[in-house]
């Protein structure tokens, strides 16, 4: 059984076709990368899977049950969560309050205090607990985002460009964090930075203008002539 099964979803915005008939499957424990030029529909894909947008058609299964039309808060309780391309934390609240907000979900298996501290420490946020989240650096905010999700013990986390806007050294650190994250949950990651995909992903899906044009191991995909020409060649010349 797939952890996530997306069959033939499409989505239009007025005249713009953001997604056309896209199929994606993910196994438990797998790390799946998604690449594609700007505007190719990657964020739209995540928006649909996480209940932010309704697809025009298609099927959505998570852990074998249909999640079509489910609200994001419902999916969070099921263990499906996401981060945002533009980092999103409760900027007006302290880091500690952000953590408390994440714990409001009230799962029966919520991490005990010791494990919470361990997570905070792992993401190196211990010295920032009383600062307003909005005053943190971008990298810190991205780590806080991860922390808030992990406190809810997701089975699948969908990351929308987790290293976007980070400095080179920070990218390296983030990749290391995500490597460790693989032990905790399955990861779906959108990225323009090929390093992230190459080092993290077990498999890559390529979107072009809303259509899936390739799907396979990163080594093959990143050598695929079509992908190189259409995407790597043009967008990242």
């Amino acid at each position: 059984m797939s952890l996530l099964q997306v069959d033939g979803i499409s989505r239009h915005f007025g005249g713009v076709t953001a997604l056309r008939n896209v199929d994606v499957r993910m196994r438990e424990g797998e790390t799946l990368g998604m690449i594609g030029p700007n505007g190719s529909g990657k964020t739209t894909f995540v928006n649909i899977v996480t209940g932010h947008l309704v697809p025009d058609g298609g099927r959505l299964l998570f852990k074998g049950t249909s999640i079509a039309g489910a609200a994001p808060h419902h999916l969070a309780a099921l263990g499906l969560t996401r981060t945002y391309q533009a980092v999103r934390v409760f900027g007006g609240l302290s880091v500690r309050k952000n953590i408390e907000a994440a714990l409001l979900l009230g799962l029966s298996g919520a991490p005990a205090a010791a494990e919470q501290d361990e997570l905070v420490h792992w993401l190196r946020l211990d010295h920032r607990l009383s600062s307003p989240a909005g005053s943190l650096t971008l990298f810190e905010q991205r780590r806080l985002e991860l922390l808030m999700r992990l406190l809810q013990r997701p089975s699948l986390i969908m990351l929308d460009e987790p290293v976007g806007g980070l400095a080179v050294t920070e990218v390296r650190e983030m990749i290391a964090l995500l490597q460790e994250l693989k032990a905790r949950c399955s990861i779906f990651v959108i990225e323009h930075t090929m390093r992230v995909i190459r080092e993290l992903a077990d498999r890559v899906v390529v979107l072009m203008a809303g259509e899936k044009i390739a799907d396979g191991p990163p080594a093959d995909i990143l050598r695929d002539k079509r992908v190189v020409e259409q995407y790597l060649g043009t967008a990242h010349a």
């Binding site: 994001p72 969070a76 999103r88 900027g91 007006g92 309050k97």
Partner: peptide
């Protein structure tokens, strides 16, 4: 209370609150 904390989360960012599992 927890209810009040949910209110505050919704005030700060209702989209994020929803993703954090709060039925807005």
């Amino acid at each position: 209370t927890r209810l009040g904390q949910r209110f505050i989360a919704i005030r700060e960012d209702d989209v994020l609150a929803e993703v954090m599992g709060i039925d807005v």
